[in-house]
Design a protein around this nucleic acid. Structure first.
Length: 266
DNA sequence: ATTGCTTCCTGAGCGC
DNA sequence: TGCGCTCAGGAAGCAA
């Protein structure tokens, strides 16, 4: 479900957790992508949440000692509640000492939440590529990476070890807006298109964050609020584009790619 | 080193 | 109503 903008919006709404203290952790279902640590309550009890931040699509809760690493998978969400609302998809309930709750809810259980002593050597975070909203992500950086890669640009942009945070929707939208075929081989993209890609990636991510992310089916922020960027999508989930062109849907590496064969010529 | 296929899990939407 | 099928914002693990 969530790509960089959605994860960022969740993190933004989790800002209120700063300096709150964990009182108790209740595991309702431990069968997440990473099995929930049996002693999670012992590990987290009395820990102070110092800050919440995003790396790629991961969420990091920095504690006074150690940290929580979490990924939302396709349907994971964090919910902040003053009174616990029962839900069959609540997987982990974290009670805070001020009486409020932080809940990890996940229908499909593709996400996870683990406690780690340190971030160093983390197998997930270590593999992440560049943050697309930083200055280091520029046309020269991208062009250099593209020129060394022989895969389709669609797959290239989805690779979290190259650029951290893009997912299926934003890659599809970026390629359409840049009029680049998703089938184009990465190393055939020139410096001009590299720059257009960088500009469009930054623009779309920022605009989506501003609009609270894309709520396609069940994405909500930690206050259970929907985003509105789905209204700005030009091609994902559509049958025709604004020019009246029929949109094609193909499979690339098991994921659906929406594209316009007329606008996005190889 | 890369590629593509399968797997994890649950629900929604469709045709029949 | 119900069955069976396909699809879904992700990504690890595996064989080739």
């Amino acid at each position: 479900m969530p790509e960089l903008p959605e994860v960022q919006c969740v993190v933004n709404t989790l800002e209120v957790l700063k300096n709150k203290i964990i009182k108790e952790v209740i595991i309702l279902n431990n069968r997440l992508r990473e099995p929930v640590q049996e002693n999670l309550n012992t590990l987290l009890k009395n820990k102070i949440i110092k800050s919440v931040e995003r790396k790629g699509k991961y969420i990091l809760f920095e504690l006074d000692s150690g940290l929580i690493v979490s990924h939302l998978g396709m349907t994971g969400k964090f919910l902040l509640q003053n009174n616990l609302i029962e839900n069959k998809f609540n997987r982990i309930v974290i009670k805070l000492t001020d009486g409020t709750y932080l809940i990890y809810n996940d229908i499909r259980k593709f996400g996870f939440l683990t406690y780690e002593k340190e971030l160093k050597d983390n197998k997930y975070i270590n593999k992440l590529g560049i943050e697309p909203l930083t200055k280091l992500f520029n046309k020269d950086f991208l062009f250099k990476k593209l020129s060394k890669n022989k895969t389709a640009i669609k797959k290239f942009l989805l690779d979290q070890s190259i650029i951290a945070g893009l997912g299926n929707i934003y890659v599809i939208e970026v390629l359409y807006n840049c009029k680049i075929s998703p089938l184009k081989i990465a190393n055939t993209i020139d410096i001009i298109d590299s720059e257009r890609l960088v500009i469009e990636i930054k623009r779309i991510l920022k605009e989506s964050i501003d609009k609270g992310g894309s709520s396609i089916s069940d994405y909500r922020d930690a206050n259970d609020k929907e985003g509105s960027f789905q209204d700005s999508h030009n091609i994902y989930g559509k049958k025709i584009d604004t020019l009246g062109h029929t949109i094609e849907i193909i499979k690339q590496n098991g994921r659906s790619t929406y594209y316009c064969p007329i606008c996005q010529n190889i």
